[in-house]
Structures are given as structure tokens and as C-alpha cells.
Amino acid sequence: MSLNEIGSMVAMQGFSGLSLFTVLLLMALGLAIIFGQMGVINMAHGEFMAIGAYVVYLFSQLTQNFAPGMREVYFVPAVVAAFFVAAAVGYLVEVLLIRRLYKRPLDTLLATWGLSLAMQQFFRTFINPKEVSAELPEWLLGAFNPTPSIQVPRNGIFVMGLTILVTVGVYLLMLKSRWGIRIRATTQNRIMSSAVGINTDRVDRFTFALGCGIAGLAGAAFTTIGSTGPTSGSLYIVDTFLVVVFGGAANLIGTIASAFSIAQAQSLLEFFLTSAMAKVLTLLTIIIILMIRPQGLFTTKVRT
């Protein structure tokens, strides 16, 4: 094998690691906000991703049936819509369910798990029990070839771009906007925040909706990678919690670092060993690190 080929392989493998990193990060961002900032264990997080994916599928179907000429452009508005639909559903769920359970975290776990089952059944009954795939625009299909021997998947580039956009957006929102200040204030000291005039109930509602909206975005992005079925969400939920817990629940940088290290470990090990072995070793390492550092990689001081 020539040097050139080895170089190409390193480049492609490097990209596949980065691509997995962005996937994990995008999945985890929404949960990091909900779990990290609010302490709500949202077992239905995966189903919010599925909502986003189904919105894209819906747009794809509508485009196919009513405006076939729009195939190349429908995807972008579909992704935006996925965010708002998931956020709106999240807002409703917060109002109807979550806010009644803030003082009972374990009941939240049960309630959101029930919610996830109900949502799965909803998808099965009203959308399609089979796996569906959105018709993707040409520019998302196939590979981008910087040199003849390097193929970089275009969908990977898209997911990566979207993740960067969302991460920067969340970062600015949380650290630079007044809204972010309110959210962090509420996380750090709810009573005091309320005393200085922050409407903490409303902060909770919007935080939850934001987290769900980002989950929807993630789901929309994943339609370029896999298919969507009623139980797709449950495939992602374990990885998502893993990233958030490993990163240190209340910390955005922690989530990024955690997604990065898990993805790189997983993808490198998978290249040299088998995928089952890679999973075992990655999980084992995480368990050991969490035994030593139960609070996760990074922490923020929180008083509640």
C-alpha cells in the first residue's frame, strides 16, 4: 500500500471520527440543557429527535407530491421547522407534565418514559409502523472528493456544519444573552433568582422547549444518516445520556469534550478491533473514569 493511500485512509478515518463526534454532540446538546440546567431526566428525549426526523420526512413527502421541483431546497426549511415543532411539543409537555413534577425527579423519569412509549405508539399508529426515509436532495448524497482517493461523505459534512452552528448558537445564548443569564441564575439558585424578579417558571418552560427543539434539529440531521421508525429515538437515548453524564451534567464544554473523546475512542478502536470490542472497551473506560470522577469530566458549581 502506497504512502498516498495511507494518507487518504488517515484522512477518511479522521473524518469518520469527527463525524461521529458531531453526531454525539448534536444528540447530547439538547439533553445537556434539559438535564444539566434543569435536572430533568427526560427519557423521551429520543422521541423528540424522532419528531424532528418525521417533520423532515413530512416535508419530503409534501415536496414530492405537491412541488417536485423543490426537491433541492426543501431540506433547509424542513430542518428549521423540525426545531420549532419539537420545541413547541416540548413546551406543551413542560406545561402539561414536567412542571408538576419538578420536586419529584424520580417521577419525572417514569413520566417521561411513559411519554416516550406513548409517542412511539403515536408514530406507529398515525405515521407509519415501518421505517421511513426522507428523499434527500442531490447535494446531500454521495461523497465529496478532494483527491481521487479520498471520499468524504457529504451528509457527514452537513451534520458537522449544523452541529457547529447549533453549538455556537447555544454557547452564545447561554453565556452572552440575558436569557442565558436567567437560565443560569435559575439553575444556580432558584429562590434567589425568583426573588430578584426572574420568572423561573417561564425560564423552565423555555429551557425545556429549547432542549427539545435542539433534539428535533438532531433528529432532522440524522435523516441524512439513517432511517426513521417509531423506535428510532430509543436507539439514541443511551448514547445521549452517556455523553452528558460523562461530560459533567451542567457544563457545555464538558459535553463537547465528552462527545469528542467518546467518538474518537469508539471510531479508532472500531478501526483496529471489531465494533463490539470497541464498544466494550469504550464503555469500560467510561465506567472506570466515572468511578474515579463521579461528577463527570467538567463541573460547574450548582446550588439548588
Binding site: 469518520s16 471520527g17 461521529l20 439513517g226 471510531s267 465494533s275 463490539a276
Partner: peptide
Amino acid sequence: EEFAPLGNTQFGSIINKIKL
């Protein structure tokens, strides 16, 4: 010879191995 866990959705590394 490769066996991916049921439900696995990330085949990047495996595909690279195949290319190799």
C-alpha cells in the same frame, strides 16, 4: 469479518476498513 451491534447506526470506521 465484522458484526455490528443490533441497532448500530455508525458504519464510518467499518466502511473505511472495507476500503482499506
